[in-house]
C-alpha cells in the first residue's frame, strides 16, 4: 500500500481522503472498503519515515492535512518504479503445510492434494463466473485472468507433486 500512496502523491499534494478516492476509482470493487483509519495510519508511518510531509492548510476549517512527497519519498518512489516485482514465488502456503504435515505423518499426502485440487478447481469456477458475468471493468477482469493463470499453475503443480509421490513410492 505504501508505494501506491507515494505514486498517487507524485504529481500533486493531496488530502488523505483524496488518496482513498483515487484508489477506489482505479481498482473499483477489488478494493474492500478501506477505512479512514487505515489511510491515516499509512500516511502517519510514511511521515514518520520522512517520505511524506503533512501540512495543515490555511483557512481550511476542517483542519484536514494535505500531504506531499519529500525528496526521500521521491527517491523511494523512483526505485520502486524501476525495480520489477520479484519473479520467483518460492513461498507457498500449501506446500509448506504439505511438507510439514506429511513429514509428521499427520495426514495422507493424497488426501491433502485432493482437497487442495478441489479448492483450486472451485476457485477457478468462482473466477470464471466473474468473467462470464462481465460488468466488473477491464482492470478487474485482467486481475481475475491473472488469478486464473496462477490457479492453473497451482493445479499443474499438484499433478507434479502427485507424480513425484508415486515415483517415490515405487522406488521406496
Amino acid at each position: 500500500m505504501r508505494p501506491l500512496f507515494l505514486a498517487l502523491l507524485a504529481d500533486d499534494s493531496r488530502y488523505g481522503y483524496e488518496l482513498k478516492q483515487s484508489l477506489e476509482q482505479e481498482f473499483g470493487e477489488m478494493l474492500p472498503a478501506m477505512n479512514a483509519g487505515q489511510v491515516y495510519s499509512t500516511l502517519a508511518r510514511l511521515e514518520r519515515d520522512g517520505l511524506v510531509v503533512g501540512r495543515s492548510v490555511e483557512g481550511d476549517s476542517r483542519r484536514k492535512r494535505m500531504y506531499e512527497l519529500t525528496e526521500a519519498g521521491q527517491a523511494e518512489l523512483s526505485s520502486w518504479i524501476e525495480a520489477p516485482v520479484p519473479g520467483a514465488r518460492l513461498k507457498d502456503e500449501f506446500f509448506m503445510k504439505f511438507v510439514v504435515v506429511v513429514a509428521a505423518g499427520l495426514a495422507a499426502p493424497m488426501k491433502l492434494i485432493e482437497r487442495q485440487r478441489r479448492e483450486y478447481l472451485q476457485s477457478l469456477r468462482d473466477l470464471d463466473a466473474v468473467l462470464a458475468d462481465g460488468g466488473k471493468g477491464p482492470t478487474a477482469e485482467l486481475m481475475v485472468e491473472g488469478a486464473v493463470l496462477h490457479l492453473k499453475a497451482g493445479l499443474e503443480w499438484l499433478d507434479l507433486i502427485e507424480q513425484r509421490l508415486a515415483v517415490g513410492a515405487e522406488s521406496a
Binding site: M34, Q38, T42, R45, E114, Q122, D126
Partner: peptide
Amino acid sequence: SDQTELQPARPVAFPFDGDSG
C-alpha cells in the same frame, strides 16, 4: 482415483492485499 462435486460459483472477494504497513 478421485471424484469432486463442484458447487455453484461462490462470490469472489477481492482482497486488496491487507498490508497497510
